[in-house]
Design a protein around this nucleic acid. Sequence first.
DNA 1: TAAAAATTAGGAATGATTCCTAATTTAAAG
DNA 2: CTTTAAATTAGGAATCATTCCTAATTTTTA
Lengths: 133, 133
Amino acid sequence: MNNYSKQREAILEVIKENLIHPTAEEIYELVIKKEPQISKSTVYRNINILFELGEIKKIKSAIGPDRYDYSYKKHSHIICEKCGQIFDFDYNFDNKNILKKAIEQIGKKIDIDNIVIYGICENCKSKNKIKEE
Amino acid sequence: MNNYSKQREAILEVIKENLIHPTAEEIYELVIKKEPQISKSTVYRNINILFELGEIKKIKSAIGPDRYDYSYKKHSHIICEKCGQIFDFDYNFDNKNILKKAIEQIGKKIDIDNIVIYGICENCKSKNKIKEE
DNA sequence: TAAAAATTAGGAATGATTCCTAATTTAAAG
DNA sequence: CTTTAAATTAGGAATCATTCCTAATTTTTA
């Protein structure tokens, strides 16, 4: 692992250029424009490698497949469980204290990578209130 | 939706009794002991209904299928991205402030349902340091 | 420049979940 | 009660996302 390949480079570029939290499928559709011969398995394999290397973040959406994120700047995510929409969220969690409590409660240190707030957004909430026919 | 069915009741009971964040498959294996005729699609359908109703929580694990949780008490989760382990985490997030910042940043109110900390646990971190053969 | 290691394309295989349908169960109405 | 309507079920087919497999190619090493 960790050798040069133009495919891997193109995939990382696409993820860097598209800050829309694309799915693997979407990454494939974008990267195929640059590397028309690329196969889907190569996209999946390299996404996983880039994630392992810590170059990109994996976001477990509430709905549909996983999404990926290149973070120029550290941030969290808010995800709606009804519509699946993902919002970038810039918040200063007290990581030092979270870490301390985590060690107390689970007995081991955790390297915090991404904090995700799952909830229901206003739009989806109000939709629910309308009596369904 | 929302009518009586002994299958749905049995599924909810199983989730209440097993606080191990079971997957749909695991719920099926447990509930089949009580309702031997039950089908897997019934389990999936009812898990979704119970989630829609807000009776159970869905946890997007870093690894493998979704997991479910009946919460007698509100809590968060810490999930390891390498091994997929899920830890219950009792932490007092400043939800009022989070909500305020969220409205500022994304322009809409969010009903916070579950805060998840994705990271890498000590065990997995130390495994990585060992030179792989 | 030759040998070893890593990566690729492409398709098959797998795993999780949803969808479909006819039969059954539950609820509602007279 | 009985009848009718609505909801739910079992079971399997279908779908979707992802991983696995293999022979060929590319990259690295020495």
